[in-house]
């Protein structure tokens, strides 16, 4: 018995760590929905939800319970198996990506060499959930939404990948931990400065990749009702919701890791306040929250893009900028203008 436990111990330890990542993540997702409604509310000079608990603090829990107890309607003539499996397929990759994210120098579940590639490939798997949901629903709105989402995600994946290649070139590694450690030495050493156009390309395509406003034609409430998840109710809808917000968080985390020095303090090397006393995880979370806020801020500010303009932006502007900057980075590395 003892021997078996000893043998299984690594497995149990991993499961424990997974729970330690996923449980706070889901909590953040829940409160991100509240934050979204609050922030957009305040920007529109409303109050946002304020009835459940003090200042609406229990609203996400109420929403969750409501969705949990709702009936899961399965449309007639839908492909039942695919209909049920689609939300799962969209949530699982969103959670899987956290396996390689280093929260601090020590806190990382799987410190694999090709961490960036892992995140990109898992992000690309997320398309299937959306595509299958749209097709299996047997509804034209859902199908339109899925088509739009799918084309958009594939297009912007390319721009996003190219933007990240710049970081890989400068840091010479695909391991997220190594990439962050390359940015040590305070705010001026972060990759966002030499790679600023890349960062812009990354962030714009990240917003498009997660199908958020102003690139939310996949949902397009005013044209195609709710896009790919129009036929989903109850927990199926909740899973899509969770996946969308989990994707937002991972994309923000990736931006922080790649361009903003991950868990490193921005004041490293400053005499007065080096920030070393603050644990790395705090810096990491703060930076991620900043990006999440910008998501909400953009949504409250910008109107929805027209579909052909989204495609034009992705293919004719972002990808050429990214490729051009890759060449420039190559030249800079060749002539030792930036340290590798």
């Amino acid at each position: 018995m003892n021997a078996l436990l000893l043998e299984l111990w690594p497995l149990i330890w991993i499961v424990f760590k997974v729970i330690c990542i996923v449980a706070p993540l889901l909590l953040v997702v829940a409160y991100l929905t509240l934050a979204e409604r609050k922030v957009i509310g305040y920007i529109q000079r409303r109050l946002g939800p304020n009835r459940v608990g003090i200042l609406g603090i229990l609203q996400p829990i109420a929403d969750g319970l409501k969705l949990l107890f709702k009936e899961w309607v399965i449309p007639t003539k839908s492909s039942k198996f695919l209909f049920i499996i689609a939300p799962i397929l969209s949530l699982v990759p969103a959670l899987l990506m956290w396996a390689v994210v280093p929260f601090t120098q020590e806190w990382v579940l799987a410190n694999i060499d090709a961490g960036v590639l892992f995140i990109l490939s898992m992000a690309s798997l997320g398309v299937y959930g959306i595509l299958l949901a749209g097709w299996a629903s047997n509804s034209k709105y859902a199908f339109f939404g899925a088509m739009r989402a799918c084309a958009q995600m594939i297009s912007y994946e390319i721009a996003m990948g190219f933007a990240l290649i710049g970081v890989l070139m400068v840091s010479g590694s695909m391991n997220l931990k190594t990439i962050v450690m390359h940015q040590a030495g305070g705010v001026s050493h972060w990759f966002v400065w030499p790679l600023f156009p890349m960062f812009m390309v990354y962030w714009i395509s990240a917003i498009a990749e997660t199908n958020r406003a102003p690139f939310d034609v996949a949902e397009g409430e005013s044209e195609i009702v709710a896009g790919f998840h129009v036929e989903y109710s109850g927990m199926g809808f909740a899973l899509f919701f969770l996946a969308e917000y989990a994707n937002m968080i991972i994309v923000s985390a990736l931006a922080v890791l790649m361009f903003f020095g991950g868990w490193l303090s921005p004041f490293e090397g400053f005499k007065l306040f080096s920030g070393a006393a603050v644990p790395g995880i705090i810096w990491f979370v703060l930076k991620v929250f900043l990006f999440l806020f910008s998501y909400l801020w953009f949504r409250a500010t910008l109107p929805r893009y027209r579909y052909d303009q989204i495609m034009r932006l992705g293919w004719k502007i972002l990808i050429p900028i990214a490729i051009g900057w890759i060449v420039i980075i190559g030249a800079m590395i060749q002539f030792n203008w930036i340290e590798v």
Binding site: V39, G41, Y42, I43, Q44, R45, R46, L47, W297, F298, A300, T301, L302
Partner: peptide, 15 residues
């Protein structure tokens, strides 16, 4: 545009 919305964020609500 972003500047404008940020200003609105800190103004009191009318609800």
């Amino acid at each position: 545009g972003l500047h404008l919305t940020l200003l609105q964020l800190v103004r009191p609500s009318v609800t």
